[in-house]
């Protein structure tokens, strides 16, 4: 195994916040300039390290929500109540501030444009972030691979990337379906979690042999992955990424 060639050591790099985009009341996207960023695959994450004035440090992992475009990367962060790093990133950090990042990490929950077969994306809440990187990589590469996104949110105001999703859904190759669990917009009668009916109605079928990417809080991911397997999807083609209850 050519481990030496592939296993490059990751070092901490300085990231500078160049722009901030509010997404929802509790989430925002940080645009970062990271000189000499080595590039990433859609779906990978990185570690953020914050250092307090007295030297105390804390690190957490965040998915990159942008596709690879040189030294600019975007993180989309939602506040975890009682979290340690996310409240700083969402409520405190401002344009011009710097912190450290290390990555990219993770070679499994990724989509590559040259990959065969349709792509089924299913996200819950801020679990949309790595899926958005995949949608953007799909658009940037001009891929004609069919992609379907099922995105579970509490209410219309909880939709992250609302503008981007509208643009992406204009593509004939991309289908975007929102599922509202608490409160739906006018004209959308269904309120409830993703269930077998939603999977049956909106997801690719097992015959389509999609690769599925499921990201969200653990109970969401457990439920959706089970639904896909029960619907007949090959478990080996269902990739999951979970946000634990103690993340943050």
């Amino acid at each position: 195994m050519e481990r030496t060639a592939l296993r490059r050591r990751l070092s901490w790099q300085v990231a500078t916040v160049t722009d901030i985009r509010p997404e929802t009341a509790t989430a925002r996207t940080l645009v970062l300039d990271v000189p000499d960023w080595a590039g990433h695959l859609a779906g990978q994450h990185l570690d953020v390290r914050l250092t307090a004035p007295d030297g105390y440090r804390a690190s957490r992992s965040y998915s990159v929500s942008s596709d690879w475009r040189g030294d600019t990367i975007e993180l989309t962060v939602e506040v975890v109540p009682d979290g340690e790093v996310s409240p700083y990133l969402v409520d405190v950090v401002k344009v011009g501030d710097q912190f450290e990042v290390r990555g990219p990490v993770g070679g499994w929950f990724v989509w590559k444009p040259e990959q065969e077969g349709p792509v089924q994306l299913i996200g819950g809440g801020s679990g949309i972030a790595p899926l958005m990187a995949m949608l953007r990589a799909h658009a940037t590469s001009g891929s004609t691979t069919p992609v379907r996104l099922i995105y579970s949110v509490r209410r219309p105001a909880s939709v992250i990337f609302v503008g981007d999703l509208k643009e992406l859904a204009a593509s004939e190759h991309v289908d975007v379906r929102l599922v509202y669990t608490r409160e739906a917009p006018a004209g959308e009668p269904r309120v409830g979690r993703i269930d077998a009916d939603v999977i049956g109605q909106y997801a690719f079928t097992p015959v389509d042999a999609p690769t599925s990417y499921v990201c969200g809080p653990t109970p969401f991911v457990e439920t959706v992955a089970d639904l896909l397997v029960e619907a007949g999807h090959d478990p080996a083609r269902v990739r999951t990424e979970r946000f634990g209850p103690t993340g943050g």
Binding site: T51, P53, A58, E84, V92, V93, D97, E100
Partner: peptide, 22 residues
């Protein structure tokens, strides 16, 4: 390294935990 002025942290790490764990 880079210091974040507005960052306090929740200080849940402890001496009996490995580095970087909470």
């Amino acid at each position: 390294g880079i210091v974040s002025e507005g960052f306090g942290g929740r200080r849940r790490s402890r001496a009996d935990l490995p580095p970087g764990q909470y």
